[in-house]
Each structure stands twice: as C-alpha cells, then as structure tokens.
Write a protein that binds this DNA or RNA. Structure first.
Lengths: 188, 188
DNA sequence: TTCTAGATTGGACAGGTGTCCAGTCAGGTG
DNA sequence: CACCTGACTGGACACCTGTCCAATCTAGAA
C-alpha cells in the first residue's frame, strides 16, 4: 500500500494519518526505534493495528515519512558571505536539528535502506532535498562533483551518527572542518 | 553471547563456526540479505538453529562478521606516485571488491547500524581498518581532517550503495572524482 | 430520517527473531 | 574400554512483522 502525502485522502483519513504520525514520533522519542512496534504506535494513536497498516506499509515507511516531514517543515536559507560559510551554515543547521531529534535520526538511517516501494519514494525525495540544499548554498555555478562530495560526506556523517560513532552535536563541528577541506581551492 | 574470532574456540567449535560462515555467505549470495534467515543458514551449515545462535548473536552479527572477514582477507597496498592516485587506488580497489559481493555490501550497511555488542565490536574494527587504509595511502603526515573527509565520503558512498542509489561499480568511478576534489590543494 | 459507500475493526494467519533448557551424543582422558 | 565434559539438538516460548477478510460502524447523500 502506498500512502501518505498522496492526494486522495479525505478528512477522516487525513486525521487518522496525522494521529499515527504524531503517535509515531511520541513513541519514537519515548522508547527508541528498536523497541517501537507498529502496534504500540497504533494503540497510542487510538487506532487498530489493521488501520495502522492501511496507511503504513512498514515500520521503515513510518520512519521515512516522519523524517521527510521533519525535513520538509524546516525552511532554512544558507547564511554567510563566502561559499564555505554558506555550506557550513547548512550542515550546521541540519546537524542541530538532528541533535534535537536523535531518535528520529537514528531511526531513519536503517529505515532508508529498506526495499519497500514507499521507502524508495521517500528516499529519493529526501536525497533530492538534501542535495538541493547543498546546491543552493554552493550557488548555481557549483561544480557538480563538489555538490556530490558534500552530499556524500553528509551521508557518511549520518551513517556514523546512526552507528553511534559520533553524536549529532559532534557531527556539526566535524562537518565544519570537512566542508572546509572539500571547499579548499574552490572559488567564490 | 559474544563470539567469533575470539580465543577459546576448540577445533570442533572452530569447524562449526567456519561452516556457519561459509553457509551464511552462500545463502546471502543465493537469496539476498532480506530473505536470509538464521535458520536456513543453520540448515545449510548442517547444524541446528540452537547451535547457530550459540555462535551468532543475531543476523546482523553474522553480516558484520562476514564483512569483517571479507575485509581482513584482503591485503591491498596503495599504488601510484601521487597521493591522489594512492587514495584512489584504495577506493577503487574497495569498490571493485564490493562490486564482486554486492549482497554482502548491501547486507552490512544496515547490519552495522544494529545495537548488539557483537556488532559494536566489529563496527569499530571495520571502521578502524578502513581509516587505516586511507591513512596508509595518504602518508604519515596527512591532515587528519583529510583522512576523516575521505572516510566520511566513503561511508556515504556505502550508504548510497546500500540504498541502491548507485551500483558498487559506479561507486568506484564517482569516488575517483570525489577524492580528487577532496585532495585538491593538499600537497605531497 | 434512512441508506450506503467506505473507513475502521478484531482476530486469525504464516513466518521470523532471539531465548532457554533438558536431553543426547562424541571424543579425549584415565 | 568406560567415562565424563562439553558441544550439539529438539522443541517450546514470547513477541514481532505484515497480510487478509468478514463484520461493524459512521458521516454525508438522497
């Protein structure tokens, strides 16, 4: 079943979905992504498990959807005069937001590795959104390879954060240096 | 239960472990990591599920262990005269090996995100081994931030490979460019 | 107000994970 | 050769994931 921010949900269904999303986020913060089960989310949302599975293709889909909403609700304009500062403002901002929702960040990384079609869709959107932010910071004439390098480094940081090798707070600081290294020798 | 390349296995136990590992790899290539179950691995190894769980803390642990062996069995010296070429020879070599075992590569990324203590141990070892290879290619006086940047970019590529956003063959080519960008302006 | 499409539900289902334990078997020791 | 330690086994366990469907609500149309 594919689902969420798709057109064709009536008011009642939309309400159900919102309750599930809110419950999912609460449950995630409360017990973490390993202990979370679709059935407890359904219960918290005041909905039957069967209904939850009407809108959620899988646990991974829930996490991906929550992360997508988390990312989409966040408007951020790159700040700073130099390109390096602008890119750093983006990575630092993202890292700060992740640090505010570490359970979500930890949940989404493995979730996006899933094979469900619904995850696939969101994965592409999330990836595109991140690349878009880096491109916006780098400017329209940016070397595509530089964009890709920054995106890869950020993905890598996400992975290492998910592994617990660094906190999401450290992530911001480390990426500052990493971005500086990548951009060294890239004008504007 | 912690386990594998630990001292304290007698010949019989070591033999059982080897059979499990070989069966795990076969099963992984045969059905992929999503369909693989510990019980089918046990069956393929000619061992009971209970025995399998004596040596394997979890499915994730199996994947992590297989990947660690895959990495450790591989001796590779960086080649080339310049630093860039040396680093590229490492990333290209790793990408080539991953391309030869895509199921394993796809399995290990989510596996390393697990929380089991056995996964934790292997995660640190695998991370250290990769960093060591980059450091060896970069030379003893390398800027630590450059090492980290290369490592992050590689992790990111692993993640994107695991997501199916790129094949492991493409990974080699893309990392060539990425490494060149990172190293631009870094002497020796 | 009644009807009805369709949202929701309860509950069963097949299959997987990881745990546990009492019982069996095999190989090195005496 | 009989013994005994410890590896291995069978099978039950609790709990999870996702799927399915017949039965039941419920809100808006007629």
């Amino acid at each position: 079943m594919s689902a969420l921010p798709r057109r064709g949900l009536n008011a009642r269904q939309a309400e159900t979905v919102e309750r599930l999303m809110a419950a999912g986020l609460d449950e995630l913060r409360a017990v973490g992504h390993e202990a979370l089960t679709v059935r407890t989310v359904a219960q918290r949302a005041g909905v039957s498990p069967a209904t939850a599975y009407t809108y959620l293709a899988s646990k991974n889909h829930l996490f991906a959807e929550l992360f997508w909403r988390f990312l989409a609700e966040d408007e951020h304009e790159p700040e700073g005069s130099g390109v390096v500062e602008r890119v750093q403002s983006v990575t630092r901002h993202l890292a700060r937001r992740l640090a505010d929702a570490p359970e979500l960040a930890a949940a989404v990384t493995p979730a996006l590795l899933g094979r469900d079609p619904d995850v696939e869709r969101l994965r592409l959107r999330i990836g595109a959104e991140l690349v878009e932010r880096f491109r916006a910071a780098l400017g329209p004439d940016a070397d595509p390879v530089v964009v890709e390098t920054v995106a890869l480094a950020f993905s890598g940081a996400l992975l290492q954060g998910g592994m617990g090798l660094m906190t999401y707070t450290e992530m911001g600081e480390r990426l500052d240096d990493v971005v500086a290294v990548i951009m060294r020798g890239h004008p504007t």
